[in-house]
Amino acid sequence: MSAGVLFDAPGPKARRRHMILTGVGVLLLAAVLWVVYKRLDDKGQFTAAMWKPFTDPELWKEYILPGLVGTLKAAFAGMIGATIFGVIFAMARMSQIKPLSWAAGVIVEFGRAVPVLLMMLFLYGALTRGGAEDIHAFIATVTALVIYNGSVVAEVIRSGVDQLPKGQREAGVAIGLTDSLTLRSILLPQAVTAMLPTLISQLVVILKDTALGYQVQYGEMLYKGKNASTIFANIVPTLIVIGTIYILLNYAISKVAVLAEKWLQNRGRVAEDSAQGGGPAGGVTAGVATVGAPGVDLAVHNKQL
């Protein structure tokens, strides 16, 4: 890995230096943790009373679990919506009909350039003009997530199709399929499979961005947790607990993305060995084998967003 490019295998001197640096690292970590702990403890944030509410089922039943459900609901709806939006707009942008592809391009670029929060605030403001209802916050949160992440997904799928071997499209046209049928039945399935890890890591973005719903008073985990903390007067422990839940969820999703990547790589290799011209499955995996590596790069880029 990178250590291979940057450093030689360590000799005796370097190994001694590494031991010292390890010690420094441990001390540094301990010092930082101690300072944070101490300062919070001085303000009484680690007294039993601050953490007691977490043993109270009411807190979980009334606030944290409903908040978690709210977060997951918005994330799930956002994910489904973004996938549908992404596939439709990717197809529209790759269409042969120029005005359609141009319009789709403008919408996708707009969706990627405008911050999610601005869209959310605008949608919420527009929806609540005639009086606010609970459902408005949910609609605003999910719609903004769908527009932004759907645009990203559309671009991911489009670059997935771009990376497929040219012969795939040519073969489709050669056996007499129309352009759109070639796209739907040959190119898209391969592109989506190849881009699966990237698409899964986009889920992390969606899940994190549900927290923006806080600003339009959507009942997600952060909003509910903040409400709870005003009742139990324990903002620091609450933020720590909520942050941990987010980290665990997102970390799990990233791990699934890595697994999907490994699975695709293995599948690619297996296909070359055993599935010689074996129906449509053989075609799909052959495509995957070639585009698997660029997908890794893209995954890194897209996590930025």
């Binding site: 360590p10 690292g25 441990v26 994190k208 923006l212």
Partner: peptide, 27 residues
């Protein structure tokens, strides 16, 4: 090249990349 320092860096990235920005700024 030091595993301990690598662990520190990796932990930082895993913690801050997986927390919503809203939560961080609010904190």
């Amino acid at each position: 090249p030091v595993p301990m320092l690598r662990f520190l860096g990796t932990s930082y990235v895993n913690i801050f990349r997986n927390t919503p920005l809203t939560l961080i700024i609010l904190s």
